Amino acid sequence: MEISIVAYLYLSLTYGGYPYLIRLLIPKELRGKVITREKKESTVTSREKLVFAVITNAALCLLFPVAAPLFLSFFVGIVIRETGIKPYIKMIGENFLYFATFFLGLMLGVLCDANTLLDATVLKLLVLGMLALLLSGIGGILGGYVIYFFRKGDFNPTIGIAGVSCVPSTAKVAQKAAGKANAAAFILDYALGANICGVITTAILTGIYITLLS
């Protein structure tokens, strides 16, 4: 219970703290950078995506069995989307998602009491979580700068912070920061790609950490 409460408390700080971190580390002209490189149309078929999802999921689950539920949830979502069954896509993407979020928030609120919030251990975990988010955000922005220089300026380094796997919060934060600097800067699709990479990497690292610690 304590870990769940702390997780939701410090994750909510991404909306409050990350915009200031972006403004602090990225100049306005770079925040509003428009990516001029044209996107190539994908030639990958739905069948190929399904095969990739099944093989990758099986490989990751075998390599990191502790994180298998995370991998399974992610890749099952890809399979359902690629099958094109619209009722299921709508049910999971809208109704199920909203209900799960509401139910989780309701349960945390009902089960949480003052003793839990005032516990010194919870406070320590909260501080550590905030520090982890701060370091992750700085690392993501530095990664954005690396790609910016690698692509000779044709990249918006704000996208880097979306690599922090708070889906889709950090992607929306990145887009909002870029949009405020330049209304023509639309980076949401790139930011969502970074989000997904962050999710997969986080799940892999979680499996490694749990395996090593146990």
Score class of each variant (00 low, 15 high):
81 R>T: 06
170 T>D: 02
213 L>C: 10
194 A>D: 03
91 M>P: 00
160 G>C: 07
54 V>E: 05
71 F>Q: 04
197 C>W: 15
35 I>F: 13
51 V>W: 12
85 I>A: 09
2 E>M: 10
74 F>D: 04
98 Y>H: 07
124 K>S: 09
159 I>P: 00
175 Q>C: 05
37 R>N: 06
59 A>F: 13
100 A>V: 08
19 P>Y: 02
80 I>A: 05
135 L>S: 08
196 I>L: 15
200 I>M: 12
58 A>M: 15
189 D>H: 11
94 E>A: 05
33 K>D: 05
119 D>R: 09
211 T>E: 06
144 G>K: 03
183 A>M: 11
34 V>M: 11
15 Y>N: 12
9 L>F: 15
109 G>S: 06
26 I>S: 00
181 A>I: 08
45 T>W: 04
32 G>H: 04
90 K>E: 07
157 P>D: 01
177 A>T: 01
152 K>I: 08
137 G>F: 01
90 K>Y: 05
130 M>C: 14
17 G>E: 09
211 T>F: 09
99 F>I: 11
5 I>R: 07
196 I>V: 15
90 K>S: 08
203 A>W: 11
57 N>I: 01
23 R>S: 14
177 A>V: 01
113 D>R: 09
104 L>Q: 06
93 G>L: 00
190 Y>V: 04
152 K>V: 04
9 L>M: 14
93 G>D: 13
170 T>Q: 01
47 R>M: 13
188 L>C: 09
172 K>P: 00
43 T>D: 09
142 L>A: 15
32 G>F: 04
7 A>H: 10
214 S>H: 14
169 S>V: 11
112 C>K: 01
28 K>Q: 14
111 L>M: 05
156 N>M: 02
20 Y>H: 13
105 G>W: 08
31 R>C: 07
108 L>R: 03
202 T>W: 13
172 K>S: 08
112 C>N: 08
213 L>W: 13
162 A>C: 09
3 I>K: 13
8 Y>M: 12
153 G>C: 10
82 E>M: 09
65 P>D: 09
143 G>I: 10
123 L>M: 12
125 L>R: 07
53 A>V: 05
183 A>D: 13
90 K>H: 04
136 S>G: 11
51 V>G: 07
64 F>L: 14
173 V>D: 00
